[in-house]
Design a binder for these strands. Structure first.
Length: 585
RNA sequence: GCGUUUGUAGCUCAACUGGAUAGAGCACCAGCCUUCUAAGCUGGGGGUCGCAGGUUCGAGUCCUGCCAAGCGCACCA
């Protein structure tokens, strides 16, 4: 309907151009919006206000001319000029019932569209280092990313969901070394655990499994392991130098065994992450290995291109990328003075690889702490001769975790964090997903565990699910009372739906496709939540005000068709969010 | 200091991207279960949209400057 009005206005504008009332070089974007107040009709446009100045006339006069040029359409019952020059449209009351039939025919496809036109979109999200279990901070990215993916699929994009696995690099070496040291402890060695190593309990578990599978094959004495190392930070040294020395020592003493220890840690944690996300309702098309970029020469190849484009130089023994020439604050190291690639080097290759795979749009969903990273990735793509405008980086602000009035502090390294799995166990998958996408992603969010945990009416997810369960309950009652639903009879008697609550619901239902389109194009899943809460409110209000299972066959079936449509939209919306739709609560 | 995100009701957040009288949920107060599930509904109080300018028919929304908070500013990822 909204689209139709846009077309009509555009046609009117074309007519006025032909009459030279409007300048011919004008190409306004027609904006139709739903009115907030029913006194203003069903839809309104500000087109006359926008064009008054270029047309050198006053808005109300122009509005009259636009209305005069408007093609006749039977769905419109009245057009008014209001306020400063708004054009208000009142729709024919018969037209509003069409949405019930639309929903019935489209079913689970109601709300879907083809605005994406099959464009290939890659959505990369979570991509947490496999150095430990996912925590609640990752949960927001997981929920947000998967719903954005669902929305893009629903609007006709071809979506590829991907997790970038940082299975190479220094952090993973620190993990491998941490596992090895815990393994040595399990073998009976005693020493002070490095301050910069991973201290989480899961590291001990991995080490224990290593003992069970490989015995003491990789054990060395404390004296050998710690001989001639620099001091750790608590002893007055540098924690980074100390851990780097331990990594080298581990590699030297273990030789081929290092990879066994390394992979033990990687595989254990990665499979935990995969299981965790799957249980959270977040799935991927691909788990992309950083190590593969190293192995197949992609990193080297991208650096060669950067070099031949004159974007690399040597300084202080390291290789730098001249990102400051392309909008970044400063230049960035790509090869460290010890010959190791930086994380950034593999990320350059990774993003180039994405574009080479032919995606029309890249969406990276990052934690807000990585925002300083955007400029250098864009710079790198430009320097490679690639189109950086295809890259969209969506930042997700961190959720502050609260237990009632107490803020929960978190640090991966110290091992003090609430895991995503713990959160799911406590509040359930539905509530967790709902809470995570309830707010705009850029909004700093407070996540109160106590509130999300509560199985009470304070929890908004139940409110929406309950609306669905209530519709289901009505149909159970229908059977118990010996009625059966006659859809066709209901459809021919939709004009029985004249109560205010009913017309309000018809309008709300008709808005659903617009909400989905907007949520998808703006990457704003919270709009779905807001909408579903509104729809649920409208339904609960209706439920309390009117009896559905009345004696009149025509009224009863008309109402049943209405609530069937409501149930369908609730299902469609909650499914997009990855939230279940229980029939009984 | 520089960059970036945020600042709206007591609290947590919306506001159709510049539109008409800024809205919800908690919390608080007063009501509604013999009726399809009360995880529900009805009514009420609550606001200098951080502050100050500017842009225009019109600003919570755009521009500038302040103030405050979060996050960055590594040869970590």
């Amino acid at each position: 309907m909204k689209k139709q009005l846009e077309t009509l206005i555009s046609q009117a504008v074309t007519v006025l151009k032909a009459q030279e009332i409007l300048p011919t070089d004008l190409n306004p974007t027609v904006h139709i919006e739903r009115t907030r107040d029913t006194a203003h009709g069903d839809f309104a446009t500000n087109i006359a206000l926008m064009l008054a100045k270029p047309a050198k006339t006053n808005p109300r006069q122009l509005a009259e001319q636009i209305i005069a040029a408007l093609p006749i359409n039977e769905a419109i019952s009245k057009v008014e000029i209001a306020g400063a020059g708004f054009i208000n449209f009142f729709m024919n009351s018969n037209a509003q019932y069409q949405v019930i039939a639309d929903i019935q025919i489209a079913g689970e496809n109601f709300g879907k569209s083809q605005i994406g036109a099959g464009k290939k979109v890659q959505v990369e999200f979570v991509s947490a280092n496999p150095t430990g279990p996912l925590h609640v901070g990752h949960g927001r990215g997981a929920a947000y990313g998967s719903v954005v993916g669902n929305l893009l699929t629903a609007t006709g994009f071809e979506v590829h969901r991907e997790y970038y696995v940082n299975d190479a690099g220094r952090q993973m070496d620190i993990l491998a070394t941490s596992v090895w040291l815990r393994y040595l402890e399990a073998c009976g060695e005693t020493f002070t655990f490095p301050s910069n190593a991973y201290r989480g309990e899961y590291v001990r578990d991995i080490a224990q499994k290593l003992v069970e599978s490989h015995g003491k094959n990789y054990s060395h004495s404390t004296a050998t392991v710690f001989a001639d190392l620099p001091l750790d930070e608590p002893e007055g040294g540098n924690k980074d130098d100390y851990i780097d020395a331990l990594i080298l020592r581990a590699k030297a003493l273990l030789n081929d065994g290092y990879r066994v220890v390394f992979d033990a840690g990687l595989n254990d944690i990665l499979s935990d992450i995969k299981e965790d996300l799957a249980e959270f309702g977040t799935t991927y098309n691909q788990w992309f290995s950083e190590r593969s970029l190293m192995d197949d020469g992609s990193i080297e190849r991208s650096l060669t291109v950067l070099k031949s484009n004159n974007y690399l130089y040597q300084k202080d023994g390291a290789t730098w990328f001249k990102s400051s020439d392309l909008g970044d604050e400063k230049d960035r190291v790509v090869i460290r003075d010890n010959g190791q690639y930086t994380y950034f080097a593999s990320d350059i290759a990774y993003h180039w690889n994405k574009l080479e795979r032919g995606f029309d749009v890249l969406i990276d969903i990052w934690g807000a702490d990585h925002h300083g990273y955007i400029a250098r990735v864009r710079a790198a793509l430009t320097a490679l001769g690639a189109d950086q405008t295809k890259l969209n980086v969506l930042l997700v602000q961190f959720a502050n975790l609260w237990r009632g009035t107490e803020k929960v502090s978190m640090s991966t390294r110290s091992g003090e964090f609430v895991t995503l799995r713990e959160l799911r166990d406590e509040v359930g998958r539905d509530a967790a997903r709902f809470f995570y996408v309830m707010r705009r992603s850029e909004q700093h969010m407070d996540f109160d565990l106590e509130l999300a945990k509560s199985k009470s009416n304070e929890n908004p997810v139940f409110y929406v699910q309950y609306a669905h369960a209530r519709v289901c309950s009505v149909f159970r009652q229908l059977t118990e009372k010996g009625f059966t639903q006659d859809v066709a009879l209901g459809m021919t008697n939709l004009a029985e739906l004249t109560a205010e609550h009913e017309t309000a619901l018809l309008t709300t239902l008709a808005r659903y496709p617009e909400v989905i389109e907007r949520a998808a194009t703006q990457y704003e899943p919270h709009l779905i939540i807001n909408y579903l809460r509104e729809l649920a409110t409208d339904f609960h209000t209706y439920y309390n005000a009117h009896q559905f299972l009345v004696e009149s066959d025509t009224v009863r079936n008309a109402r049943l068709n209405l609530i069937t449509a409501i149930r369908q939209v609730l299902v469609n919306g909650l499914t997009l969010l990855g939230i279940s739709t229980p029939e009984v609560m």
